[in-house]
Design a protein around this nucleic acid. Structure first.
Lengths: 164, 164
DNA sequence: AAATGAAATGTTATCACATAACGTTTTTGC
DNA sequence: GCAAAAACGTTATGTGATAACATTTCATTT
């Protein structure tokens, strides 16, 4: 039996792994992507992205702010952080997780997709999936209610493989 | 071809209808449900629920606060509103929509279900669905990532039937 | 009906998240 | 080099939510 396509970073997010590779890869991909798109991954934007990729747990704007201050040794103000976040969101390098008021790195910034997160209640790590068939099932369900979908956000809560 | 079960209030939320009936029914059901459960639907709790059922659009806590003040003619403070909301959430008479920081009445308070909302970008009305098969598809997708689901929140954005 | 404990509400203060508005600096294209 | 655009700094404020503690109301027992 052939299973349908499911792109996911759960093997990294929800398992032991060499996280430094995750971060390095994400940053390298971000740099390339910004070059291609002729947009500027400035030092402060890259610093925020790097901090977000410190882990697979979503991180709040004010937490980023504090870490930036610690790193740079001077006061940082909220708009600085939010502007970087705004840029990274626009480039789809990160996502905002509404239920957490927090941000997480996107592992597939070049693949257009809707939001689908697996949030572990125990360890806090969040994995992301691209599940075309599920997107279709969602669109089909909406269509039965006469609703045309432009976007969706699905947050699945539970326990990851390691925390079960 | 037989379609699978889909409980939804989209016919009310996303069509012209006699909304007074929606509200009356929701309040009557809430009263009965609280009687059954031996919990108290106090005047302030009922007032908040009634205000939430003023429409099918999600409403923020501070908007409720202002409307309560207008209604009761005296100052209301945030904890008053949040306590009522907390109670209504616990009884599953309302839901919180994370992406909106706002609350909406639940049309099926007695049916256990996960959150599945259809948010219209044009008119702002939100319909809710209970879609067992979709819940299963979500659980199955999560399972393929080794993830066990305890809850989920799905917010579908787009255009409702009337706004297309 | 008074006593009691639990539940609900009132009140003060503060925390957490996010953005508007405007000035300055840096970068980029000409 | 120059002008326009983009990015960044700074001040102030808007918006959503809760901690902590005092007081009142309610239900139950006696």
């Amino acid at each position: 039996m052939r299973t349908t396509a499911l792109i996911s970073n759960t093997r990294a997010a929800h398992r032991d792994h060499d996280h430094e590779r995750c971060r390095t890869a994400a940053l390298a991909q971000a740099r390339g992507l910004c070059l291609d798109r002729r947009v500027r991954l400035t030092p402060s934007r890259e610093a925020v992205l790097r901090l977000i990729w410190d882990s697979h747990c979503p991180v709040g704007a004010y937490s980023l702010l504090e870490r930036l201050e610690a790193e740079q040794g001077h006061r940082i103000l909220p708009p600085t952080v939010y502007r970087a976040l705004e840029f990274l969101l626009a480039q789809r390098l990160i996502h905002r997780i509404p239920s957490r008021n927090a941000f997480i790195g996107c592992p597939f910034p070049e693949v257009p997709h809707h939001n689908l997160f697996l949030l572990c209640r125990h360890c806090g790590a969040v994995a992301e999936c691209c599940a075309g068939p599920l997107d279709q099932a969602i669109a089909a369900t909406a269509a039965r209610a006469g609703f045309s979908v432009t976007d969706h956000n699905l947050e699945i809560e539970g326990l990851c493989r390691q925390c079960q």
